[in-house]
Simulated scan of single mutants.
Amino acid sequence: MILPDHARLMARYNRWQNESLYAAADALGGDARLADRGAFFRSIHETLAHILWADRIWLSRFGKCEKPACAGHETLKLWPDWEGLKADRQAMDDVVEAWAAGFSEDDLRGNLEWYSGAAGRNMARPVWLLVTHIFNHQTHHRGQVHAMLTSAGARPDDTDLFLME
């Protein structure tokens, strides 16, 4: 099991890394951000939109925001423009940090039940495991974005957790 301080640390890391990636992506034009780069979600823009979509899906299950009104592969319906995506990402980072700040050890020991579209059935898992999953999912896809940005000539910051101040 993780402790509340770990969730708070990962929420800070989430914001720090999002700020880095979005700043690096800002240096590229819209066509470069939307170019199909062979990633699972094709482009920089779409992969960043997927991360935000997934954060909203998960945080909606915890009662912290509204569920997105589209499937995970349709994120350009929600965020067709870069500025809207950036603004919603910043707002979600506030939600993620407030959510993590509110955890107690008892909260993390509890279970969450939800219907999983990916699994096609009702699920129940320990909260600490799902919190770990949410932050792991973000990190996984941000790594893909980091690689796409680097190959496009942008310069995102380092990703090492120990370098975060």
Rank of each mutant, 00 (worst) to 15 (best):
G84R: 13
G84L: 09
L85D: 02
L85W: 03
L85H: 05
L85I: 04
A87W: 03
D88M: 11
D88A: 13
D88T: 07
D88Q: 15
R89W: 09
Q90I: 14
Q90L: 12
Q90H: 06
Q90R: 15
Q90T: 13
Q90N: 11
A91N: 08
M92F: 09
M92C: 13
M92G: 02
M92Y: 08
D93S: 06
D93A: 04
D93C: 11
D93V: 04
D94G: 06
D94T: 10
V95K: 03
V95E: 02
V96M: 01
V96D: 00
V96L: 04
E97I: 09
E97W: 05
A98S: 04
W99I: 01
A100D: 01
A100N: 01
A101V: 04
G102A: 13
F103E: 01
F103P: 00
S104R: 09
E105N: 05
E105G: 12
E105R: 13
E105A: 15
D106K: 11
D106P: 00
D107G: 07
D107Q: 05
D107R: 04
L108F: 11
L108V: 08
L108A: 04
R109L: 11
G110E: 10
N111W: 06
L112V: 05
L112S: 03
E113R: 12
E113T: 09
W114P: 01
Y115T: 08
Y115L: 04
S116M: 09
G117M: 10
G117H: 12
G117L: 14
G117W: 11
A118I: 08
A118Y: 10
A118F: 11
A118W: 10
A119W: 07
R121T: 02
R121H: 06
N122T: 03
N122K: 06
N122H: 07
N122I: 01
N122E: 11
M123P: 00
M123L: 11
M123I: 05
A124S: 12
A124P: 00
A124V: 03
A124I: 03
A124T: 05
R125Q: 12
R125M: 13
R125F: 08
R125T: 04
P126Y: 10
P126N: 12
V127F: 04
V127P: 00
W128G: 01
W128R: 06
W128Y: 14
L129V: 13
L129C: 09
L129P: 01
L129S: 11
L129F: 14
L129G: 04
L129K: 07
L129E: 11
L130F: 06
L130S: 03
L130E: 07
V131G: 01
T132G: 14
H133S: 10
H133W: 07
H133A: 11
I134G: 00
F135I: 06
F135D: 03
F135P: 00
N136H: 15
N136D: 15
N136M: 14
N136E: 15
H137E: 14
Q138H: 14
Q138N: 11
Q138I: 07
T139N: 13
T139E: 12
H140T: 13
H140D: 14
H141Q: 14
H141F: 14
H141N: 14
R142T: 09
